[in-house]
Simulated assay, not measured.
Amino acid sequence: MTVKDLVIIGGGPAGLTAGLYAARGALNTLIIERGMPGGQAAATERVENYPGFPDGIDGPDLSMKMAEQAQRFGCEIIYSDVDKLELHEKGFKITYSDEEVIAKAVIVATGAKPKFIGVKGEQEFHGKGVSYCATCDGAFFRDGTLAVIGGGDAAVEEAMFLTKFAAKVYIVHRRGQLRATKILQQRAFDNPKIEFVWHSVLTEIKGQEKVTGIEVKDVRTNELSEIKVDGVFIYVGTEANSDLIKDLVQLDERGYVITQEDTGTGVPGLYVVGDLRQKPLRQVITAAADGAIAAAQVEKYLASLE
């Protein structure tokens, strides 16, 4: 059975940065990523607030550069779901695709996934007009009318991206003002293709074979109204991908992992980084910082075993 100094589960900015630092520190390092490198960053059209790119950089481009940099120093990346993470006499045993690997230390960087609203039609029309990723699906709605549900940074950023394809984009938000940062708000207000539906919540997604409209409720009057749309993009927060380690670590009420400042979990050799960790700000830069810190802690931990 293969033995690694470090296995990193998840290849987003946190996992890739950890892989870069660990491999550069001469640790035998493996990243297991279930999708494409970059995680949610790879599904973001434009990243404008990551230092070193004054004109911004496309999320997929930044993600691939991070992966290339980690691999340059010898970090191995494979693509698979991880089925199980268990304690082992030599550290940890990771099972994936009918394979097993032993790791002396593990960094979990599985991030978070979009949160479902749970309204009628959401599941039925998932992939048939309901999406959680504008960069993945926006081009399918060229010249169409779309609704974006939410009022945070992600919702506003993706709504603006969708105006590249759609003729009109509604932003439906339960409050009378956005939660997004001011610069994003102003760009949205200045975009003639965007119309705001304030004080409203989504109650139903309608359609036959595909989405044809949405029903929204005014939270002040409880009045229901319908808006004809070709697609619905939902951005109402995220849920932690913590199932893999929920029995090993302490979780908060939302399922995010409670860690020490150095990303340790209380389980020797097990660290949690990025969006999966309980923290006040989930951004590419804080994920990368977590990865660097965790890799440095792994080096110290492995040295203590010798």
Rank of each mutant, 00 (worst) to 15 (best):
residue 191 N to P: 10
residue 17 T to P: 01
residue 42 A to I: 00
residue 129 G to F: 06
residue 266 G to W: 12
residue 146 L to Y: 14
residue 34 R to M: 11
residue 17 T to S: 03
residue 21 Y to M: 06
residue 171 I to G: 01
residue 306 E to T: 15
residue 302 L to K: 05
residue 38 G to M: 01
residue 263 T to P: 00
residue 71 Q to E: 13
residue 215 E to H: 10
residue 16 L to Y: 02
residue 83 D to Y: 04
residue 70 A to E: 08
residue 49 N to Q: 08
residue 285 I to R: 03
residue 150 G to N: 11
residue 255 G to I: 04
residue 223 E to R: 03
residue 54 P to K: 01
residue 62 L to E: 09
residue 222 N to P: 03
residue 290 D to K: 01
residue 111 G to I: 02
residue 202 L to E: 05
residue 166 A to C: 12
residue 15 G to A: 08
residue 285 I to G: 01
residue 267 V to M: 10
residue 101 V to M: 11
residue 283 Q to F: 04
residue 38 G to Q: 03
residue 278 Q to C: 07
residue 123 Q to H: 12
residue 161 F to D: 01
residue 110 T to I: 07
residue 201 V to R: 05
residue 40 Q to H: 12
residue 208 Q to C: 05
residue 183 I to P: 00
residue 128 K to H: 13
residue 281 L to Q: 08
residue 143 D to M: 12
residue 72 R to A: 11
residue 299 E to P: 01
residue 224 L to E: 09
residue 113 K to H: 13
residue 81 D to E: 10
residue 181 T to V: 13
residue 71 Q to S: 14
residue 285 I to P: 00
residue 123 Q to V: 09
residue 248 L to T: 04
residue 115 K to Y: 05
residue 148 V to A: 14
residue 90 K to G: 05
residue 163 T to H: 15
residue 87 L to T: 12
residue 96 Y to E: 07
residue 241 N to H: 02
residue 191 N to L: 13
residue 144 G to H: 11
residue 9 I to P: 00
residue 250 Q to C: 10
residue 24 R to Q: 06
residue 172 V to A: 09
residue 90 K to S: 09
residue 34 R to N: 09
residue 234 I to L: 04
residue 174 R to E: 09
residue 15 G to C: 07
residue 64 M to C: 02
residue 34 R to E: 11
residue 140 F to I: 15
residue 196 F to M: 15
residue 118 G to H: 15
residue 112 A to R: 04
residue 125 F to L: 14
residue 300 K to D: 11
residue 135 T to V: 15
residue 213 G to K: 06
residue 93 K to G: 07
residue 265 T to K: 00
residue 293 I to D: 01
residue 52 G to N: 04
residue 32 I to A: 01
residue 235 Y to T: 04
residue 87 L to H: 07
residue 122 E to F: 10
